[in-house]
Amino acid sequence: MATLLRKIGLIRLHDRDTEDPKHHQGSLKGTKGNQKNNTKHCNTSNETNILSTPEIKAKKFDHSVKDKTPSKDKQGKDTKEKQQEKQQQQQQSSKSSSIPQLAPQRQHCTQVRTRRLMKELQEIRRLGDNFITVELMDDNLFEWNVKLHQVDKDSALWQDMKETNTEYILLNVTFPDNFPFSPPFMRVLTPRLENGYVLDGGAICMELLTPRGWSSAYTVEAVMRQFAASLVKGQGRICRKAGKSKKAFSRKEAEATFKSLVKTHEKYGWVSPPVSDG
């Protein structure tokens, strides 16, 4: 037995000695490598666990947001300032676009109207036939008082003028900004007339005094001749009634009457007087 046990022990010792030292070292290296990897893995896991905690993440996110995004007050101020700048730019652009367009147009219309009226005044004074005379209202070139001295001498109106010692029929004529491309507004002041297409307030029912019947070729002198003809054709007379004759014509009433008659004639047509008769 003793010899048997000794043999077995020798065999085990022999096996240990005959084992491959490289294999043994590899196994040792493997264990060391596993230890190293394990330590590295533990270290990395610990680091990631420490850096990835929610508190630290939240802090980092807060700092980054604070650095990048401005405060609400700053945002509000910036938006208000931008809106104000846009409004100022729009106002400046609208002013710059409107002023150069409107001012020259108005200036041109004023020049055309002034030249035309000055020319007509010279022509009326040059004629000197005592048909009409013109006076400026308060030295205003754009508002005239026109005296009509003559009508058809065979008419009843002419007889009325003689009997009442009426030397002329006085009319007020105002010229709009775009004259002569738009008609003047004309009304009778004195005496108070009946018929002859003279209506309430001294308004005159004549198609040529409306935008539809007006032509820029008409002169004031030509308009007055047509008005004199329409007075006779419409059997105009001087009012001699005690109550009515003293009542003066008014501009507001004349303007309202003229607007009303224009609407009526635009709806039903201009039957009398025709344009040829004034």
Rank of each mutant, 00 (worst) to 15 (best):
Q87G: 00
I132K: 04
T174N: 08
K77A: 14
T3P: 03
L171V: 08
N140T: 01
R106V: 13
Q235H: 09
N165D: 11
Q90P: 00
M186W: 01
P104S: 13
K247H: 04
K66D: 08
T264D: 06
D17C: 07
K95E: 14
R6Y: 04
K29F: 06
S215Y: 13
S245A: 15
I50V: 10
T53E: 10
E19S: 13
K40I: 03
Q101N: 09
Y268T: 15
D177W: 01
C239E: 15
L13T: 08
E266C: 12
V188I: 15
E143M: 04
E85M: 09
H63K: 15
S182E: 13
K86R: 15
R115Q: 12
K267G: 01
T166I: 07
E221V: 03
A228L: 05
L102V: 12
S52D: 13
F249P: 00
I50W: 04
N165Q: 03
L208P: 01
P70M: 03
F61K: 15
E85D: 09
T48H: 02
T69L: 14
L51Y: 09
K86T: 14
V188R: 06
L193S: 07
F61T: 14
G202V: 00
L10A: 15
G201F: 01
T18P: 00
M1H: 07
S230I: 04
Q226Y: 10
L261Q: 13
M161W: 06
K7P: 00
V275Q: 10
P273E: 05
G278V: 12
F227V: 04
Q107D: 07
S98T: 05
E207I: 10
N37R: 05
A254P: 09
N145H: 04
E221G: 01
R192K: 07
A222W: 07
E55N: 09
Y168S: 15
M1A: 15
T110C: 05
S230E: 04
N140K: 01
Q101E: 10
F175P: 06
Q84G: 03
M161Y: 08
V271K: 15
I99C: 00
Y168W: 05
Q105M: 14
D129R: 14
Q89T: 05
Y218E: 09
P184Q: 12
D73R: 06
K22Y: 06
K72T: 11
S93N: 12
Q35E: 11
E85F: 07
